[in-house]
Amino acid sequence: DRYEFNINGVHFTIDDAEEELIKLIEELLKRGARAEEIEEVIRRWER
């Protein structure tokens, strides 16, 4: 599934997002994580 979200006006799209990654990102968003922090999480996840 495609997952899309915005952080401070920056648009992100993840194709074939796994449910666990989506939950992790949503938790980070609730905590007010910065875009750079979430980008790093996504990079690590994709390795």
Rank of each mutant, 00 (worst) to 15 (best):
I14F: 06
E19D: 12
K23W: 11
A17K: 11
R34Q: 15
R47C: 08
L21A: 01
Y3H: 07
R31I: 13
E20A: 13
F12A: 01
D1Y: 09
I14P: 01
A17H: 07
E40M: 05
I14A: 02
D15K: 11
G9W: 01
N6I: 11
R44D: 15
E37T: 07
E26Y: 06
R47E: 15
L21H: 01
E19P: 15
L29D: 02
A17I: 07
E18D: 13
R31Q: 13
E26C: 03
A35E: 06
A33C: 03
D16N: 14
E20Q: 09
V41F: 12
H11C: 14
A17C: 04
I7Q: 04
A17W: 05
R2Y: 07
R47G: 15
D16S: 15
Y3R: 02
E19M: 09
E39T: 10
E26I: 08
E46G: 02
G32C: 02
E20I: 07
D15N: 12
I14D: 01
E27N: 10
K30H: 11
L24R: 07
F5A: 04
A35W: 09
A17D: 05
I42N: 01
D1G: 13
I14E: 01
D1T: 13
Y3I: 05
L28T: 03
L24Y: 07
R34C: 08
E4Y: 04
G9A: 03
A17T: 08
R34A: 15
E4G: 02
I22V: 12
E36C: 02
R34I: 10
E39Y: 07
Y3A: 02
F5T: 04
Y3E: 02
D1E: 14
I42A: 01
A35R: 13
I22H: 03
I22K: 08
E26D: 10
D16C: 05
R43Y: 06
W45F: 08
K30A: 12
I22D: 01
I7D: 03
D16I: 13
R43Q: 13
E27S: 10
R44H: 15
G32E: 09
R31Y: 12
I7H: 08
E36P: 09
F12E: 01
T13N: 07
L24D: 07
D1C: 07
E46F: 13
K23E: 09
E36T: 09
E37L: 08
L21F: 06
D15G: 07
I38A: 02
H11R: 08
R31N: 12
D1Q: 14
L24V: 14
D15C: 02
E36S: 08
V41G: 02
G32Q: 09
E19R: 07
E19T: 12
E37A: 05
D15A: 09
H11E: 12
R43L: 15
R47V: 15
D16H: 15
I25C: 01
E4P: 02
R47Q: 15
E26A: 10
W45I: 01
E46S: 03
E46D: 08
L29Y: 06
G9Q: 05
H11Q: 14
D15E: 15
G9K: 02
F5D: 02
V41M: 08
V10C: 05
R31W: 08
K23H: 12
F12V: 08
E46Q: 03
A33Q: 03
R34F: 09
V10N: 08
W45G: 00
E37I: 07
R43D: 13
K23D: 10
A17P: 14
I25Q: 00
E40S: 03
L21Q: 02
L29E: 03
F12W: 10
E27G: 12
R43H: 14
T13Q: 11
T13V: 14
E4H: 08
R44F: 15
R44E: 15
I7L: 09
L28G: 06
E18K: 08
F5P: 02
L21C: 01
W45C: 01
R44I: 14
W45V: 01
G9I: 03
E26R: 09
E37H: 07
W45H: 02
I22F: 05
E40Q: 06
H11F: 11
I42M: 04
I14N: 01
I7M: 06
I22T: 06
G9M: 05
K23F: 12
R34N: 15
E46H: 07
R34E: 14
I22M: 06
A35Y: 10
I25V: 10
I25E: 00
T13W: 12
R2D: 05
V10I: 13
Y3V: 06
R34Y: 10
E18F: 03
A33M: 05
I25H: 00
A17N: 07
A17R: 07
R2I: 10
A17S: 07
F12I: 08
R2M: 10
D16W: 11
E18C: 06
H11V: 12
E26L: 09
F12H: 05
A35G: 07
V41T: 10
D1L: 13
V41I: 09
I25P: 00
V41W: 05
F12Y: 10
R44P: 00
I42T: 01
R2L: 08
A33R: 03
E18G: 06
L29P: 00
A35N: 07
R43F: 06
N8H: 11
I7S: 07
I7V: 15
R43G: 06
E40V: 04
N8I: 03
E46Y: 14
E18H: 10
G9Y: 02
Y3G: 04
E4W: 04
R34K: 13
R44C: 15
G9E: 09
K30G: 11
E26W: 09
R43E: 13
D15M: 13
I38V: 13
H11W: 14
D16G: 14
D16R: 14
R44N: 15
E18L: 04
I42D: 00
T13A: 13
L21R: 01
H11Y: 13
A33G: 06
F12P: 01
G32P: 04
E39F: 08
E46V: 08
I42Y: 04
E39H: 13
E4C: 06
L24G: 04
H11D: 10
I14C: 02
L28N: 06
L29K: 07
A33F: 04
D1V: 15
E36R: 06
D1K: 14
A35H: 09
L29A: 08
V41L: 10
V10M: 12
A35S: 09
R47D: 15
K30T: 13
E40I: 05
I7P: 00
E20R: 06
D16K: 14
V10K: 13
D16A: 13
L21G: 00
G32A: 06
K23I: 12
E18Y: 04
N8K: 04
E46P: 04
E36I: 05
I7A: 11
E19L: 11
Y3C: 05
F12S: 01
I7F: 06
